[in-house]
Every structure is written in C-alpha cells, then in structure tokens.
Design a protein around this nucleic acid. Structure first.
Lengths: 239, 239
DNA sequence: CGCCCCCTCGCAGTTTCTGGGGAGTGAGAT
DNA sequence: ATCTCACTCCCCAGAAACTGCGAGGGGGCG
C-alpha cells in the first residue's frame, strides 16, 4: 500500500470527468495506485435508489442488496452517525447479523480491514467512500493515518462530481417549506400531536392542519409520518 | 493574502483543541496567517440555536441575528443547496432583502469578497466556514483557487472538533430494534399505512402494530411519527 | 428448566388524522 | 397595481391510528 500518488492530477481528472464511466475508471486507477484490494464509492439517496461505483465483485454487490445487509451493516449505521472517517475495527460488530455480514463479506473478497469516509450533500444526500484491504492492524493503521487527509479530499471531489452527474436529482428538488410549515413539521417530529403543536404555535388546530397538508403536498408525501421522514432525511427540518 | 501556511501543524492544533476557546484562538491565528479580513465558522440550525466562532465584530453578529438576516441570506440558502465551496459572487443577490443585507454587511466591515464552505454532519447538522476580504475579483479568484483544497480540509477538521466539543450532544444510546421492528418502521417511514406495511411483510395488521408499539417504547417516542423521526435521526433505519 | 425476548394473532372502544369544501388579510413580487 | 402566496379561521364525514384487554409458540441463555 502506497501513499496517495499525484493528488493534484487525480483531482483534476475527477473535476474533468464527463460521465459516470469516467468515475469508474478513476476509481479503478486509484485502487491500483493505492495498492488496496477494493475501493468503493456509493450513494444512498433518500428515495431508496442508489448509485455506486467501485471494485467489489458484482456477485457480492447483488448479494449485499438481496440479503438486505444495508439494514444491518455497522459500516452504514456507524458512518451515518459520525462525521469523521472511521476504521471498521472501531464499529460495533457485536450483533449476530453484523458478524454474519462480515464473514460473508470476507468470503467474497472484501478485505479484513476497512476504512470508510461518510460524505453528506444537500437534501440529505449521504454517500460513503470506502477502502478495504487485507492487512495487519498495524499496517492498516499506518496506511490510513498517512493518507487520511488526501482521502477526505478525494472523497469530497468524488462526491461533488457524482452530484453533478447524477441524473434525475433535479426533479427531486422539492419546493422549500414556509417557516410556519417548518415549525409545524418540527413539532410533529418531536412527538407533539396536532392539537399540542397548534397550541404551541398559538394557532387553531385547523390552521396547523393546513400547514401539515401543504407540507405533505410539497414534499410529495403520502401521509404525515412520511412527510416528517422526508423532511428529516432532506434536512428540511432538524430535530 | 498568502497560501495556507503549515497545514499539518494547523490541523494538529485543531485536533488537539480541548475547548471552544481553543477554536477561537485557532481561527484568529489562521485569519492572520492567511491575511484575510475575516474568518468565521458557524453552525446553522433551523431552530435558531447556533454556535459559532470567528472574527466578525460582535455588533455585526448581533445585528445579523436581530434583523433575521439568517432567513434571507443568500450565503446560507445557496450553501444549503450546494456541496462545493462557493464564491459569494456566484450567489443570487437579486432579491431586495439580499442586497440590503450585503450593503449592511459591507458597512460593518465584512469584505466585498466572500467564500463559504458548506459542511454537513450527522443528524442534519449544517455549518459554514467562511472567509471574507476586500480584494479585486481577480485576486480573490486566484486566492480561493490556490487554497481551496486546504480550506476544505481545515473546514472539515474544524467541524469535527466543533462536533466533539458541542455540549448539547448526548449519546442517548437506546435499545436496538429487532429486525422485524426495523422493517416495520422503515415501511412506515416510506409512506406505507399500517395495513399496507402489514401486507408487505405478510403479517396481520395487529402484529405489525405490536412491532410499532414495541419500537415506539424502545425509542422512547410519544407516537408513531415521533418514533420514525427518532429512528431516522439516530440512523436506526435508513430510508 | 425457567426466564426473557421475538414472532404471531384477535376484539372493541376512543381519539386522531385525512380530504373535501369555503373565506378573509397582508406582504412581497411583477 | 394587480397578483400570488403565506397565514389565519371554520364545518363535516369517513378512514386510520391509538389504547387496552388477552393468548400462544419458538429460541437463546443462565
């Protein structure tokens, strides 16, 4: 495993990428240059669709999806709650499902070591930039320490380009909620009933209802719970 | 204006900061070293609370808050929709309130040029790392281009430390949900009614109800919407 | 072998939410 | 100066969710 080579040139390549294919080529080259087993960038969008590119076997990717590993993966859950890159060893693998996932992953060629960088974009976008490799704890620690900053930057530029190139993200640009709508949704998100929320805002329950309906419409949600979930995952409201 | 000096040492200083005061000192030193007029880190939250440190006059900060500029500031709104750092010139200053804000800002010593880096953390955290200065368009463009990568990194480490030090962050690790409970909550979060969700899982509606109640209890939530919101913001479920 | 948790199912009554109407004011934008 | 949009209020009826009662089988762990 070597240090990130020619950071400047790599970032320039990323910036000049014109299609998702270019990102796939870039990630493979970077994998080779770093000398790690796998390098993956993947993005979970709020509507469930996800785009990713990387060097995992297709078989493993499909298996991961089919088995619903997304829901039990400590890497996902851990990164979702963290800001800084995280070594897989520091995550919580105590649950049975998690250990099973890890064994399965190793069996499919994912290394015993991993390092994942969480990245967040507008509208609740969340992506991971992950390295995996077979190495000793010491070597891996050394490697990740040496390259952390460059990897953070690469992940950033990678995500920037993915955001640019990702099709179908404009329609998802929902209308902004009005201040009152945001207040109403926020109160519902922290457990208030409509009556309580209306009382808190000193308006009639009917008025509050109008806000919630309006917000539901703007967010394209099917019901109040859905609307709160969408508002949260897009960062429209914060609890 | 000079290039970012001694990036390594600066990041080390940030990493070893033990209090918010250290961050204030760090930001002032960095400002002096960069030779820009102002450098500000602030954490924007929609409910109004915010923490920040920087070199703006206290008078200006207070005025900004009192006037409710937060709601009309194109810097906030623009960065909220973007991932990459943005030059203030590229934002939309067409609205009357925005131009008024800009004039007011310049009058209070904020430079005519600005550059803001959006940063996002877990649970919808959103912060800005902003430079402002008096300079010509050409000089400013040159400066920001030369320092972009280093500034992104600094902003990242700054935010990491701010997240660590932020007092109001309670771990509050709740009980884990069972697989079935996670499935149930996830379906509700994507807009399914209880009946639909039960149908999807091929169980009776009542059984599904038991899961939801159980999850609500484990999450310490007051109702289903609250439970979904808590599960989402804790990363227990991913939509 | 109990104990605890996970999974599964039923009934009934009460409360809340949803969706369909209509209506008036004020601020900001064209 | 009109016009849009946010904000406020009201009624009604049906659909859905919540509350509280109870019940049994299966699996892991001390």
């Amino acid at each position: 495993m070597e240090n990130v080579p020619r950071l400047d040139r790599l970032i320039q390549r990323l910036e000049s990428a014109e299609g998702l294919d270019d990102l796939q080529v870039a990630i493979e080259e970077l994998r080779d240059q770093l000398g790690v087993d796998h390098l993956v960038y993947h993005w979970v969008s709020s509507n469930g669709e996800q785009y990713g590119c990387g060097t995992y076997d297709l078989e493993w990717v499909n298996r991961y999806v089919e088995k619903g590993y997304l829901r039990v993966d400590p890497v996902i859950q851990g990164c979702y709650q963290r800001f800084h890159p995280v070594d897989w060893k520091r995550l919580d693998w105590s649950s049975k499902a998690a250990r099973q996932l890890l064994q399965d992953a190793i069996k499919h060629g994912v290394g015993n070591q991993g390092y994942s960088i969480p990245i967040r974009g507008p509208n609740g976008q969340f992506a991971l930039f992950t390295l995996s490799h077979n190495a000793s704890d010491e070597d891996w620690e050394q490697f990740t320490n040496d390259n952390r900053r460059d990897l953070i930057l690469i992940a950033h530029y990678f995500n920037q380009k993915a955001l640019e190139l990702e099709p179908g993200r404009k329609p998802e640009q929902a209308q902004a909620l009005s201040p009152r709508e945001i207040e109403a949704m926020t109160l519902l998100a922290v457990g208030y009933s409509r009556a309580q929320a209306a009382d808190t805002l000193s308006i009639s329950e009917h008025t509050l209802r109008v806000y919630v309906e309006s917000a539901r419409f703007k967010l394209g949600a099917l019901n109040t719970t859905h609307a709160v979930a969408k508002a949260l995952s897009r960062g429209v409201i914060v609890v």
